[in-house]
């Protein structure tokens, strides 16, 4: 089932991202304790960070729904003149309606 694997992707991606953040924090704490200068994060944390973002992005894009075409007239294609030309604020009531629909 595609739907649940997508959700799993989001979950794992976010979890892994949190884990990467935690690793980074740990690394900073380790550096502070050993009194070393901070230059950059270790490569494995960076890699995990990037990969988990990609995974989460992929999952979210799949989960939120179908893409719609970038086409300005798509919404209008289904409309007909019957609804577009119907103007509620200019309704008049002096027409055949009362004889057609009312049997009172």
């Amino acid at each position: 089932m595609g739907f649940s694997t997508d959700k799993l992707c989001v979950f794992i991606g976010l979890l892994s991202l949190v884990h990467a953040a935690y690793s980074a924090a740990q690394h900073r704490a380790y550096l502070r304790l050993t009194k070393q200068e901070f230059t950059s994060l270790p490569a494995d944390v960076l890699l995990q960070c990037v990969l988990s973002i990609v995974l989460a992005c992929y999952g979210i894009v799949r989960v939120v729904g179908e893409f719609r075409a970038i086409k300005a007239s798509l919404e209008l294609e289904k409309r007909t003149w019957d609804t577009l030309g119907n103007r509620p604020s200019f309704y008049t009531f002096s027409h055949r309606g009362r004889f057609l629909f009312h049997s009172g």
Partner: peptide
């Protein structure tokens, strides 16, 4: 209400 007026259904 508007639809009923349109149909002449006063009640």
């Amino acid at each position: 209400c508007i639809a009923a007026l349109d149909c002449g259904n006063k009640d």
